[in-house]
């Protein structure tokens, strides 16, 4: 499964690479949106099966019967998906720099923003994935539910911060953006922790 996600990231970046063969845009200006669109769509496919597979394979009952709270299930799934999605994003970043000949920005800052953004993405994505696992057409419903609440909060802020990094910003310029993303991370993890009880209880 992880294989196919890696291939998906590769495919998305390859499509972007081919756009630039035909259209003459500034690659440095568009680097940040390209990266985050790749993260968003490949990450979404990593989020989709988290709870869906428990339902399909009938292991949900086992999880419910286990003597652990719903929030422990949430945190377990959060950590596992976080590692997978972070790995995916790092792979995409490497492929990005291979495909697009960009001057290297401050890599520590870039990785920092990617880690912070991924935490928020996974925290809220986990909760929405639990919601969509209960729906018919869950494959379609995940992006439908995810986009309006994720895109305008954590993704938008991360895109802006990444844009500044490619623009040659230092840590001091980014402090507002980093604070905001951190705040989103905390709010999303907290809301996942508080709300997951209502979603997976039977």
């Amino acid at each position: 499964m992880i294989n196919s996600m890696l291939i998906l990231s590769l495919m998305i970046l390859a499509s972007f690479r081919f756009i630039f063969k035909f259209i003459d845009f500034s690659e440095t200006e568009l680097a940040s949106p390209i990266l985050w669109i790749t993260f968003f769509f490949s990450g979404m496919f990593a989020l989709a099966p988290i709870y869906q597979r428990e339902v399909e394979q009938g292991t949900k009952e086992g999880l419910m019967l286990a003597p652990i709270s719903a929030s422990s299930i949430y945190f377990g799934k959060f950590l596992a998906t976080f590692i997978i999605i972070l790995g995916l994003n790092l792979f995409s970043t490497v492929v990005f720099f291979a495909f697009f000949a960009q001057p290297m920005p401050d890599m520590v800052l870039l990785l920092g923003i990617i880690v912070l953004g991924t935490i928020g993405f996974t925290a809220l994505g986990n909760l929405i994935s639990a919601i969509s696992a209960n729906l018919s057409q869950s494959q379609v419903m995940l992006p439908v539910l995810l986009i309006p609440i994720l895109l305008f909060t954590v993704i938008m802020t991360s895109v802006e911060a990444t844009f500044q990094i490619f623009d040659g910003a230092v840590l001091a310029d980014l402090s507002n953006g980093i604070k905001l993303i951190l705040a989103f991370d905390i709010i999303f993890v907290a809301s996942g922790y508080l709300m997951i009880d209502y979603i997976i209880e039977e």
């Binding site: 209960n134 609440i149 709010i187 709300m195």
Partner: peptide, 13 residues
Amino acid sequence: RISAVFGIIGFLC
């Protein structure tokens, strides 16, 4: 339950 949760998260956003 799930729509109440989504309604709250949506408004929170």
